[in-house]
Design a protein around this nucleic acid. Structure first.
Lengths: 120, 120
DNA sequence: TTGATATGAAACCAAAAGGTTTTATATTTT
DNA sequence: AAAATATAAAACCTTTTGGTTTCATATCAA
């Protein structure tokens, strides 16, 4: 069985502010659901659902210890995030716009910062 | 200026795969809605809505040229993404895990990171 | 064993997301 | 001026999201 039938990916997982905060809390230390819940104004059940979504995205994993389930952060999937923004950052894609301003010679018509915006 | 009552932030904006692809397309060059639409199996109206959401998040801006509206990428808000990511990598939050590695005696077992998978 | 604690799971709900189709408006083009 | 093009905006629909409440189960403490 391939593990790729995940319903939620990293991008969806971090879309919710509560989930982002959960990740921040877990970055400091492993925490059980009830402990996590105490940091939010919503129900334990709601937090449990968020954890499930984070878990699907493999951003957290939980292990059972006695009667509680402790969740911990897993950072691997965040690399996808890094890759995403770097796509627009370091590389040619966004750099081109400003650097080559004059030499639109490579087939990709490059956007010049539109100075004509300021004409009036 | 601070129209900060924005309904959609960067995290929500990039949660949708179609919107991420739109951003990739716009990274190469400025494009009008109809051109963009031709890259997707959904309606122009749907793409227009996605552009509106991206616009709210200030990831794109549109300028009207004749009868068409050309959209371009705006990368600034992606720094927020970068910051989020780095929060879990470079800084103390994830560093802590290494530092306290030995004192797992305070009730909550501290997690040793899986960073070694990536750092090398 | 009994009661408190920690979680799991199901049923339900309102609002938001992501689409569609239809109608209207502005701008070319002929 | 008329037809074609490009977008905007509204109404509508279905699924997903983010939350709730309620009930069940497992584990710990007394």
């Amino acid at each position: 069985m391939s593990t790729s039938a995940q319903k939620h990916d990293v991008f969806q997982a971090i879309a919710d502010p509560t989930r982002r905060e959960v990740l921040r809390l877990l970055a400091e230390k492993e925490l059980p659901i009830s402990e996590l819940t105490s940091h939010f104004p919503i129900s334990r059940t709601a937090i449990a659902k968020h954890l499930h979504i984070l878990s699907e995205a493999e951003l957290v994993s939980g292990r059972k210890v006695g009667r509680e389930k402790r969740y911990r952060l897993q950072t691997e999937p965040l690399t996808e995030l890094k890759q995403f923004y770097e796509q627009f950052w370091n590389n040619k894609l966004s750099m081109l716009k400003y650097i080559v301003e004059d030499q639109e010679d490579n087939g990709l018509e490059v956007i010049k910062p539109d100075l004509d915006k300021h004409k009036s």
